[in-house]
């Protein structure tokens, strides 16, 4: 490949390209484009980007209780006296909290695992925020009677929910799992076989 016209490996440009390349979803070409965009941009824009990066690292922390990303700990949800304190919804990532909040249908508390059990990627239970969940159930939110496991309906999500079920049931806590079935507004004809099969398996009585 053509190496002419490339900045030297230790130049400031190469360092910036390298930094962008480390970001998820950014290939070498995109990293170069981003770096040269920053170079051409006004000083002001580069300053704002640098400030935003540092600010987010300085001010955003993990909530000591639910492990969600927050600028204050405990976070707004954990600190909200009007939320039900008997049920905790366990999710994989902070974005999942936002998704469930958008439904407006859940008034309990959350706990963010920051991942899911996936031994092939070297991730075991001890790499997730599970010890934090146990400590919380023991010391802070002692009135919790139900934990809803809202991990994704794939193999790793199932493994994680089963692990949590085994861990929490001996503590006298009911462990439930999100239902699986047809998406709202779906057309049966176009549903894939696995989803339709699950919907049949987990059918409900009409009331």
């Amino acid at each position: 490949m053509n190496t002419q016209g490339r900045p030297a490996a230790d130049s400031p440009i190469a360092r910036l390209v390298e930094a962008f390349h480390r970001l998820p979803g950014i290939g070498p070409k995109s990293a170069q484009r981003l770096a040269y965009h920053v170079l051409r941009a006004p000083q002001q824009e580069a300053q704002e980007l640098a400030d935003a990066l540092l600010e987010v690292k300085r001010s955003v922390v993990l909530c000591a209780r639910c492990q969600d990303l927050t600028t204050e700990s405990p976070c707004r949800i954990c600190g909200d006296a009007s939320r039900e304190r008997t049920v905790i919804c366990v999710v994989e990532e902070p974005l999942d909290v936002r998704a469930i909040e958008r439904t407006g249908g859940f008034r309990g508390l959350y706990h963010v695992l920051h991942g899911v059990i996936s031994p092939a990627d070297g991730v075991g239970p001890e790499d997730l925020k599970i010890q934090e969940l146990l400590a919380r159930l023991r010391d802070v939110d002692t009135g919790v009677t139900e934990v809803i496991v809202a991990t994704n309906p794939n193999l790793e999500g199932e493994a994680t929910s089963m692990y949590l079920g085994r861990l929490l049931r001996p503590l006298g806590i009911t462990v439930t799992r999100l239902a699986r079935g047809l998406p709202a507004g779906a057309d049966l004809e176009y549903a894939d076989d696995v989803t339709l099969g699950r919907a049949l398996e987990f059918r409900q009585e009409v009331r």
């Binding site: 996936s118 031994p119 070297g122 075991g124 193999l155």
Partner: peptide, 10 residues
């Protein structure tokens, strides 16, 4: 199988 072998190595 991939996950189980990963766990065996862990």
């Amino acid at each position: 199988l991939q996950q189980r072998n990963g766990l065996l190595r862990l």
